[in-house]
Computed example of a mutant assay.
Amino acid sequence: MAIDRRGFLFGAPFLLAGCATARRPAPAEAALPLASAPAHAASYEAIYAALDGEPHPVPAVDLSRIDPRFLRREVAYATREEPGTIVVDVEARYAYLVREGGRALRYGVGVGREEGFNFRGAATIARKAEWPRWTPTPDMIRREPERYGKYAGGLPGGPGNPLGPRALYLYRGGRDTLYRLHGTVEPWTIGTMVSSGCIRLLNQDIIDLYRRVPAGTRAVVLASSAATG
């Protein structure tokens, strides 16, 4: 059973304090008026509507609580990474799925609440899971036994599970890094520093990304300027 990274948020009763920090400007990108980048609210309401056909509810996103910058869209994106690669810009709070022709699908993300919590570098999506099980790490249980000890055996996927409906597992050198890209039970945290290192997306976005990338996909998490000095 895979053990997930310390410090996923677990809904209001288990809320960990998020950090409100200064953000650098988003990369210079030209938004493309394509079907995947709706230009009006009605299109976003359709994209972020409640989803049918799932074993557990996936409610609609309350768009009034999301900064529009972090809604899914296709953008122009210059990178040396090959099409099909996932690039996470921790500082800008975006994840990109690189496409042909200098384009990418861009998703807003929530990232680690402290710089030291964030994974950096290249990894492989070696495992994918629908409605994944969540298990706190031994470090989480040791630090806060009253909060996490009762979940030492894991929590099945479903409503309230902090991983949401999908998870993409980052491996390096054939070993689980304990970092994931996953959904969230707290959509209003997208665009903030809030987790203990995992990359969280809106549930509709992680479902979209999940279906687009196979196991074996390369993922790159960019170091922030704070980390590089």
Rank of each mutant, 00 (worst) to 15 (best):
G229D: 04
M140F: 13
S224R: 12
Y169I: 04
R80C: 06
P57I: 04
K150R: 15
R24S: 03
R143T: 12
L34C: 11
Q204F: 01
A20L: 00
L105G: 10
E81T: 13
E146W: 15
A17Y: 00
P156C: 05
A95V: 08
D176C: 01
A122V: 09
L16I: 11
G53A: 03
D205I: 12
I3D: 05
P165N: 10
G154Q: 06
F14L: 13
E91M: 01
I86N: 09
I207F: 06
V88M: 12
R72C: 11
A26D: 07
L155N: 03
G197W: 12
W131M: 09
G149L: 12
L202T: 09
L16N: 06
M193H: 02
P68L: 02
A126S: 12
G18E: 04
T177S: 07
A30S: 12
H182E: 02
P162G: 05
E115F: 02
V90F: 07
I3N: 02
Y107P: 08
F70C: 03
A122R: 15
A215Q: 12
P145Y: 14
R218P: 00
H40A: 15
T177A: 06
G18F: 00
P187I: 06
F10M: 11
A39N: 11
E186A: 05
L222Q: 14
K150S: 14
G108M: 08
R65F: 03
G164I: 08
D67R: 00
Y96M: 13
L170N: 03
R147Y: 05
D4H: 00
V98K: 13
E81W: 15
L201R: 05
Q204V: 05
R120T: 15
L201W: 06
R24G: 01
R93A: 10
R80T: 14
L202Y: 08
L97C: 14
D52M: 03
P138M: 05
N203D: 14
R106D: 06
A50Y: 05
R24F: 00
A41Y: 15
A92R: 07
W134L: 01
P25Y: 03
G216H: 02
G18H: 02
G121K: 15
A104N: 13
R120E: 14
T192V: 00
A126T: 07
E54F: 08
D62W: 07
A76S: 15
P13Q: 04
G116W: 14
D205V: 10
A12K: 15
V109N: 11
P33R: 15
L181S: 03
Y94C: 08
T192C: 00
V75E: 08
E114L: 14
Y169M: 01
V87Y: 11
R172M: 01
E146F: 13
G174R: 01
E114K: 12
L163P: 07
R80S: 13
A126D: 10
D208C: 10
V61W: 08
D4F: 04
W134E: 01
I86C: 10
P38S: 13
A37W: 09
L222G: 14
L168G: 04
G11R: 03
G18P: 00
I206S: 07
G154H: 10
I141N: 06
A223N: 09
Y151T: 03
E115I: 08
Y169A: 03
R142V: 09
L9K: 03
Y44P: 06
P55E: 14
V194A: 05
R175I: 00
K128I: 09
Y107R: 11
T189L: 03
T189E: 01
Y210K: 09
T184H: 05
I190M: 07
G173W: 02
G174F: 06
A152Q: 13
